[in-house]
Amino acid sequence: MSVDEVGRWSSRVGSRVFRRFVETRELMLLVLIVAIIVGMSLASPVFLSLANFHAIAIGMAPTVIIAVGMTVLLVSGGFDLSVGSVLALASTVTALLLLSGASIPLAILGALALGAVIGLANGIVVTRIGVNPLVATLGSMSIARGIALVLTEGFSLINLPPAFGWAGRAEILGVPFLLWTALALVVVFDLAMRHGSFFRQLYYIGSNEKAARLSGLAVDRVRTLAYMLSGLLAALAGVLLASRLMSGTPTAGNALELQVLAAAVIGGASLRGGEGTVLGAFLGVVFVALINNAMTMLAVSIYWQMIVTGAVLVVAVALDMLVRRRDD
């Protein structure tokens, strides 16, 4: 090889490694997460404490659970704005059922079923009637929140049976049960999205719906089920939140849908569909949670936190577009 060729070869290999790194969103996020942890441990003595990690874990668990459903939906080319409201509605409905004397399992099942039904309704309106997902779920977002507020007249419902608080308080091997649940869902759905024949269909549908139809996939059914899953997981997050707070809160999860969307997109999902992984979305949630926690530790005001989160979102997506453009 001539010097020239060696140079070209090595620069090609070098840029390939770099590209692979930037392309593998999970890897990039992981490195950033480690960087934040290391940096913050040096900057703040309180950061690297069990208590702090405990707080982060509990705080982000519902977001992670919802992000799982959102990612599944985004990959299929769908979109769900109603998740924050469904979380609130599920938490109040669980509380109402408990207060009216229903058993704990029954109350939980009732709330989950309600979430799935809202998801089903979203799915039907979007796939069968053809309403744009943004519009359809904007509507159900408002409706679900409204119902939660009507049912409670805007107040939180307290005095729930003590046994109901187990899920919110329990720890297994020192890790909160909430986090275990969220992690289990991440693992199961990440694998299912990679290897499951049912969930694989979502990628086809999201990347070319027409071709998916002509390849014989049951496009409408699969998409509707993705909406149901999103509703169901949002309701599950609502139930767990109610257990942790020991109250049904109609105002919970405000603007949560935007946080979840941002995390999923930072994790590599695309609003155009066909791309994204559950693992990526999970890391996206962790990343945003850590940034927010770090800023709190450094006594940055909550308003500034919003600005930073927004900037991170745009930078992450812009970086992605740049890498892609160079690739084509």
Binding site: G196, S197, Y203, Y204, S207, A211, A212, S215, L217
Partner: peptide, 25 residues
């Protein structure tokens, strides 16, 4: 075709089930 998906993914789409055991591809 699914232009953003891999050659393999494109090839198996019509027979996803036959490449899966217990729902696992």
């Amino acid at each position: 075709l699914f232009l953003s998906m891999s050659v393999t993914d494109n090839f198996v789409v019509t027979a996803l089930r036959s490449f899966a055991r217990l729902g696992w591809i």
